[in-house]
C-alpha cells in the first residue's frame, strides 16, 4: 500500500509542475510535456522506493503514476480542444448563462473549424493556394492512408460528427 501511496503523492506533485511547463515551454507539444512529466514521476517514485523503502513494489507504484498521469492528460485535452466545453465557457460568461445559438456558431463553432483548417496548413498536411482554396499535400494523403487502415481494422466507415458513428 505504501508503494501505491508513494506513486500517488509523486504523481500529484507532478500536476502543477506540468502546468508550469505548459506555460514556460509553449514551443513543446503538450503531449511531450505530459509524457515527460509522467516519465519523471515514474523515475522519482522508483528512486524514492529504492532509497527509502524496505519493500518497494514497482507495479502498484507505477499503476498510481499511470492512473493519475493519464487522468491529468485527459482533463487537459478535454478543456484544450473540446468544442462542447468551449461552448460551456461561453454560456457561463453570458447574462443568465443563456445565449442565442447563433452566438455559439459565430464565437465557437466557426472559429474552431477555421482554426483547425489553418492548423493543418501550418502542419504541412494541407496546402493553401493564393485563391484561398485548399488541397492535401503528399504528407497529408499519407497520414490519411494510415488513419484509414486503422479505421478499416476497427470497422469505422465514417468519422467526424457524433451522429454519423
Amino acid at each position: 500500500m505504501l508503494s501505491i501511496l508513494a506513486g500517488t503523492l509523486v504523481s500529484f506533485a507532478s500536476i502543477p509542475l506540468i502546468a508550469v511547463m505548459l506555460r514556460i515551454r509553449s514551443d513543446w507539444t503538450p503531449v511531450a510535456v505530459f509524457a515527460g512529466g509522467i516519465a519523471l514521476s515514474e523515475g522519482v517514485a522508483i528512486v524514492i522506493g529504492a532509497v527509502w523503502f524496505d519493500r518497494f513494489y514497482f507495479w502498484p507504484a507505477s499503476a498510481a503514476v499511470g492512473a493519475i498521469g493519464i487522468t491529468n492528460f485527459f482533463v487537459f485535452s478535454a478543456v484544450y480542444k473540446s468544442v462542447s466545453l468551449q461552448m460551456l465557457g461561453i454560456l457561463s460568461a453570458q447574462k443568465d448563462c443563456r445565449a442565442n445559438k447563433n452566438l455559439l456558431i459565430e464565437v465557437v463553432a466557426r472559429p474552431a473549424v477555421e482554426e483547425r483548417m489553418e492548423l493543418l496548413v501550418a502542419m504541412g498536411l494541407v496546402a493553401k493556394a493564393p485563391d484561398q482554396t485548399y488541397s492535401p499535400t503528399v504528407e497529408g494523403l499519407q497520414t490519411i492512408a494510415r488513419l484509414q487502415k486503422l479505421q478499416q481494422l476497427f470497422g469505422i466507415n465514417r468519422s467526424g460528427l457524433y451522429r454519423n458513428t
Partner: peptide, 19 residues
C-alpha cells in the same frame, strides 16, 4: 479515430477531387 475533428477534416479534404 472515430471523432477526431482535425483528422476528420483532413480526411474530408482528401476525399474531394481537386482543391
Amino acid at each position: 479515430v472515430c471523432w477526431g475533428f482535425t483528422t476528420s477534416l483532413l480526411a474530408a479534404l482528401c476525399s474531394i477531387d481537386g482543391a
